[in-house]
Simulated scan of single mutants.
Amino acid sequence: MTSQNTPHPRPRTDAPFLVGDRVRGTTYVPRDPHRREHPEPFEGVVVQVGSGYAGIDAGTAFLWVRLADHTERQALVADTELMP
């Protein structure tokens, strides 16, 4: 059984996302040098969560999500929601 199929308790209620959570949102694309890429909707599993420390990077906290095709996308926590 893989970790994606195993339910896990949410030990930190103050964390918006945990590794293994199923989420959906909009990808983050930096303005430069990726001018040909555009934000797009996604659904996937969280594989990495940025720090999001208050006063440091809370406004730009990132997470990385693995999609069904096994590629990963970066997203802002603020542009992502937990799926039921």
Rank of each mutant, 00 (worst) to 15 (best):
M1D: 12
T2W: 12
T2F: 12
S3W: 10
Q4R: 10
Q4C: 04
Q4D: 12
N5W: 12
N5Q: 15
T6F: 03
T6C: 09
T6Q: 15
P7D: 07
P7T: 07
H8S: 09
P9D: 06
R10D: 08
R10P: 00
R10S: 06
R10C: 00
P11A: 04
P11L: 13
P11E: 12
R12F: 11
T13C: 00
T13V: 10
T13I: 06
A15F: 10
A15C: 05
F17D: 02
L18M: 11
L18N: 05
L18F: 05
V19I: 15
G20H: 05
G20F: 04
D21C: 08
D21N: 11
R22M: 03
R22E: 10
R22A: 14
V23A: 06
V23R: 03
R24C: 10
R24V: 00
T26Y: 00
T27S: 09
Y28L: 09
V29I: 15
V29G: 03
P30A: 14
R31S: 14
R31E: 15
R31M: 07
D32E: 15
D32L: 14
D32M: 08
P33V: 13
P33C: 04
P33M: 02
H34R: 15
R35S: 13
R36N: 09
R36I: 03
R36V: 08
E37L: 14
H38N: 09
P39E: 04
E40W: 00
E40V: 08
E40H: 08
P41K: 15
P41R: 14
P41D: 11
F42E: 07
F42M: 13
E43P: 00
E43V: 07
V45R: 08
V45W: 10
V45F: 11
V46D: 05
V46T: 04
Q48E: 14
Q48N: 12
V49G: 01
V49C: 06
G50K: 02
G50Y: 01
G50C: 12
G50I: 03
S51P: 01
G52H: 04
G52R: 03
G52F: 02
G52A: 08
Y53L: 14
Y53V: 10
G55I: 03
G55K: 01
I56D: 02
D57E: 14
A58N: 14
A58H: 09
A58K: 10
G59H: 07
G59S: 07
G59D: 10
T60H: 06
T60R: 07
A61N: 06
W64T: 13
W64H: 04
V65S: 05
V65L: 09
L67A: 05
A68Q: 13
D69Y: 05
D69F: 03
H70Q: 15
H70V: 07
H70T: 15
T71A: 09
T71Q: 13
T71H: 12
T71W: 06
T71R: 15
E72A: 05
E72Q: 11
E72P: 00
E72H: 13
R73I: 07
R73V: 15
R73D: 05
R73A: 09
R73F: 02
Q74H: 00
Q74N: 06
A75E: 04
A75L: 00
L76W: 02
L76K: 04
L76M: 07
T80V: 06
T80N: 07
T80Y: 03
E81V: 14
L82K: 13
L82P: 00
L82G: 04
P84Y: 01
